[in-house]
Design a protein around this nucleic acid. Structure first.
Lengths: 320, 320
DNA sequence: AAGGTTCTTGCAACCGGTTGCCAAGGAGTC
DNA sequence: GACTCCTTGGCAACCGGTTGCAAGAACCTT
């Protein structure tokens, strides 16, 4: 069906190697011949088979991007940025979703291994040990996780958390609830780290929680009962769940309790009150991850990107 | 680096073809030999190279899934469903985003062509003619678009629109605004079709509009001025924009104007008032698209999936 | 025990390209 | 006009598997 290199060679009476070189090393073939080949190729609708090429060259010009959950609005901007960046480097990005299941994640990586030149692992659910083992077969760049000797793109959650706490403190809040996410998640750990260093604040810790709206909804009553006047939530989904749960209890946000999330996702911007949040540099992260992978010479280079506080309507002065 | 079929063959003193058969046609090899091969393979960490295999078999066990915009909350559930369904059939799905750009879309398809057994095209931006041409090189299943002779998964927008209009009529609404999306979009056309058939209702048409929250926000004043007591919006994002715009004008939803969207995306569920909407069967669509592609024998089979009205808080009795 | 089956395995060509090596031919030099 | 040097393009091996064919071994039949 589709034209192969042989068809082109036959069509213009040259050897296949000449056709091959026309595409992969044009300077080695006579301009006249080259244009003849190109014309024939165009005529037959020939396009080099990347998979076949990869077999000999070892480079697929593809990369994999594995995320735990595409539905999480945090990921799409990162994915788009990575794809755009890769396209500019003549690479293609294949995205796959693991459904938060480590087994699926492993299987996916194994399948991808031979079909890509590297894999971008976003918020992986696998153990460090497993990741290190898989890294023997294919280069990785890890996003949102620190693994010894492996290139990583990190978001400065600690700094963002600090911004958020300072903002709340400036509004007069003293007793603040910290609603974390799943056990062992990078963000949760970072948040706790900051909490440990915070002085002059009275922090109450809740967790672990599901990293979704449901998680926030479920923990709302406890948060309301603890006497905090502000909440710092694991992410925007949790924050939105909290707002909803608190409203259901007739507790106004921000009048009675202030709420801050992380990520800056779309629903947070649409919600009322509009959510105050710590914006994650997802777009930059996507770009950086691609760059790190391609310049892989950098070995275990780690990039940490700063976050930014976006003040909207869900935070206000502490009630006195 | 990674073990190949040859390494395994050498390790247990058989020919490569025997190793190959151990994996692709186990019944043709002696059980004793087979277990020896499997042991050696396991020992060396051997995994068949899918790309190389595809070269001779012509089957990659991969499929492509192309969407216009991953950020649109409508797509992720569809994507997840497709991936899950494919996984069950021992297939993998590579997702790519075109950024709404037809040129990127074409390029992506061309690249994918040789690396997948088929492509799922969701809400494509390419012309029918171009799609038909590309279909010569790789099987397609189109989602949300009808193209002669090509397998398609459609959502019954007309039926959903009818449900919505009936719901509104039942609440006493007579004058209803129809806020459409981009020109030529499948959903917009279907909506208009239903509108043309609606009797006893006074429909006011607004469009084309951007299919986003901004589009809804922008058209809100006109809608408010036209005297309608209810609005049927192109999708949930537009509906959310409308709600926001109307609120800004001190027009209450649903007290003064009822609003219905399409899609049933997450932000609509989180918003207050919670959005009444026509739910699209995105999960089923993802599954069906995969099935259609795999049983491609079905040629131009077209599946139409029903939609469902989800009544929440943004619709109420018409004010009298 | 001869002849016929069925199993098992090796051989070699092939999938669609890439690339090192080499020879032919043209241009340039003296 | 003979001798380099460079350009050009063919040859063939190779990437990692698959598969039709055939030969040898083991098993069955009568």
């Amino acid at each position: 069906m589709a034209a192969t290199i042989k068809d082109v060679a036959r069509a213009c009476g040259v050897h296949v190697s000449t056709v091959s070189r026309t595409f992969s090393a044009p300077h080695l073939v006579n301009p006249a011949t080259r244009s003849r080949v190109l014309a024939a190729a165009d005529d037959l609708g020939y396009r080099p088979n990347r998979a076949a090429r990869a077999l000999t060259t070892g480079r697929t010009y593809n990369m994999g991007l594995i995320v735990a959950d595409i539905s999480n609005p945090f990921f799409p901007p990162l994915i788009k940025a990575a794809q755009a960046q890769a396209r500019g480097r003549d690479y293609h990005v294949f995205v796959a979703d693991t459904d938060e299941d480590p087994r699926v994640e492993e299987e996916l990586i194994r399948t991808l291994t031979k079909q890509v030149d590297g894999v971008l692992l976003c918020s992986p659910r696998l153990s460090n040990k497993m990741i290190e083992r898989l890294a023997e077969d294919v280069p990785f760049v890890v996003v949102n996780r620190r693994i010894k000797g492996m290139p990583a793109v990190l978001m400065n959650v600690a700094q963002g958390a600090k911004l958020a706490l300072d903002h709340l403190a400036g509004l007069g809040h003293r007793r603040i609830a910290l609603v974390s996410g799943p056990i062992g998640s990078w963000t949760s750990n970072e948040m706790q780290g900051v909490a440990a260093e915070a002085t002059g604040l009275d922090l109450v810790f809740f967790g672990p929680n599901q990293p979704t709206e449901t998680g926030g909804l479920a923990v709302a009553p406890e948060v309301a009962a603890c006497g905090a006047t502000a909440v710092l939530a694991y992410n925007d989904l949790v924050a939105l769940g909290l707002v909803e749960g608190l409203s259901a209890m007739e507790i106004g946000v921000p009048d009675q309790i202030s709420v801050i999330g992380f990520d800056d996702i779309l629903p947070g911007r649409l919600n009322r009150p509009k959510l105050t949040t710590v914006a994650m540099p997802a777009v930059q992260a996507g770009r950086m991850a691609v760059d790190l992978l391609l310049q892989s010479g950098g070995e275990g280079a780690t990039v940490t990107l700063d976050t930014a506080l976006i003040v909207r309507e869900s935070t206000g002065r502490a009630q006195t």
